[in-house]
Design a protein around this nucleic acid. Sequence first.
DNA 1: TCTTCGGCTAAGAGCGCTCTCAGTGCGGGT
DNA 2: ACCCGCACTGAGAGCGCTCTTAGCCGAAGA
Lengths: 335, 335
Amino acid sequence: MSRAAGRPTLESVAARAGVSRATVSRVVNGMAVTASSEDAVRKAIDELGYVPNYAARTLVTQRTDLIALVLPETTARVFSDDQFFPGVVNGVSQVLEQADKQLVLLLAGSPSSHARIARSVAAHHVDGVLLASLHGADPLPETLSRIGIPVVCNERPLGSTPLPYVGVDNVGGAATAVRHLLTGGRTRVATIAGPQDMIGGIDRLAGYQEALRDSARRPSVAVGDFTLGSGVSAMRQLLADDPDVDAVFAASDLMAEGALKTLRAAGRRVPDDVAVVGFDDIALAQYTDPPLTTVRQPILEIGRQMATQLLRLVAGEDVEPTMTLPTELVLRQSA
Amino acid sequence: MSRAAGRPTLESVAARAGVSRATVSRVVNGMAVTASSEDAVRKAIDELGYVPNYAARTLVTQRTDLIALVLPETTARVFSDDQFFPGVVNGVSQVLEQADKQLVLLLAGSPSSHARIARSVAAHHVDGVLLASLHGADPLPETLSRIGIPVVCNERPLGSTPLPYVGVDNVGGAATAVRHLLTGGRTRVATIAGPQDMIGGIDRLAGYQEALRDSARRPSVAVGDFTLGSGVSAMRQLLADDPDVDAVFAASDLMAEGALKTLRAAGRRVPDDVAVVGFDDIALAQYTDPPLTTVRQPILEIGRQMATQLLRLVAGEDVEPTMTLPTELVLRQSA
DNA sequence: TCTTCGGCTAAGAGCGCTCTCAGTGCGGGT
DNA sequence: ACCCGCACTGAGAGCGCTCTTAGCCGAAGA
């Protein structure tokens, strides 16, 4: 724990360049100095291998250049089954890298991590927070907005705290998918819905119901949790409920793949006997058997936009409080 | 950028509690003080909602409580196709959370990010670095070890710089899988290998060759890149090379799934005509058709051990320079 | 009762940086 | 030749915390 072996400081660079600390600081931060000073300073910086100390800078600027991405999912689900989070992380990372900010990943599985996150934020450890995939009325948005730190959510938060968010057109995407099924002549269109305490689950079901209402068909719903396994169970239930079901809209590709497997096991041909449409358009969708018709949501772009909005907020600029990205029906062979 | 609206400091807590800054600091850091002081301080902390400022603490302790996880993969691949990284992130996160450290995620896709990472590390922005999935002779380990920061890799780095790492028994796992195929009476056992600039790709192929050499069979190899799509192409090639192939060992579950799809499309029954074994045991393996026999590697545990080793290093303790976690053959229906 | 010792506490000196505020030198206007 | 203004520079004061160094006070020993 001794002092780091003489890491060069502003002071030493200044001494070597024969100028004051302030001048070195100006060069480092890109402010105007005379060419001769600048040359001397740059030379000294190179020779010494000087790198500014983050903590010292943060202490005075009150800025950490750290952005937190909070994933308040159960750790089991996050990062294990689908490819939504990885995609978002990727998008966020791209934008932050350009802005020279760092990404702090907070997986908030247990309730205790909520306290930890709040504390970390209160300690001014990060400049802003990205909240992904909130469940139900999570208290975190409320807590954070009270602390007064910039926050951007993925999807409209369910609680009462209004926060800027970047979402996708879940309702429209789902409705389009179901109308495609209906237009194709299907008469008994069921759905495998997502969790009903998440916007994605709720709104995609709403889109299904809306499209069905338009054509006066009777809904048939089984609820899953976006995972493949839950798609398997849900499809079994749907088959039991109505053996004559001829189409299924699943609120995630993983659940759609589960449905496909169950249908195959039950001897139904897809799309001949039963048509299947998914939601997400993850890589898997191209490789299912048959390849999956699905509603694409721009996952990477969600991450990018969330990060972009947050950086604006951090910079003190105003942002569009709500932003809805389009979805698009990708036609393959399953429907 | 005016001063944050009166966030309480050590000073204000001290004033309110009627003690000195040093005493408050002792309470916050859990050092011995008299009960009466402690009560007064705790009361003041609660009333003021005091939270210590990280930057200030870091400045003096030279410790950031930040651990970087570097994923020097092409961003397209990381986080999009398989579930290895998510699992590792999860494991790392669990350990760090307990140690009250934060995880900084660095996706190093472009060469420019290498420079950024090196700079960030040199600026003492993080206490230690976890390097995952190095490709070929990546210069990053060398750079980091010269800076003199604690580093732990996942898998033995291919370059010349010796660094502590946490790996799995790739050779043994692959050999076990292939021997299982041989024992089951298969005579023409091919393999879909992983990228040959990564330890996982290299060692699993070595295991395959080792097992085959023992039984004097002729190897048949197609190389993929761990993704489902590459498994599809590789299987097609294998089928073209030897139409009588009766078993395949794939170096990842995703490639195994690709092989299954290709085999089905080619009209081969699994396991009757061709047996398939994968590697990883990701969630998907339970749901393939038929369910996949595979070599399980303890992904979460890799993350946990990497983090644990790194924290030791950061704390100045010694660690086992190399650590190899066991793999295990999980029997399902595909072989 | 006086001394000694040990456990706490207060004060102060930084950690490395930014930023304000004078100050310096130079050119141009009169 | 004088003054004003401009552009840049240097000194110094912190940012909020930790840690060392004295100093204080009460209890135990003589």
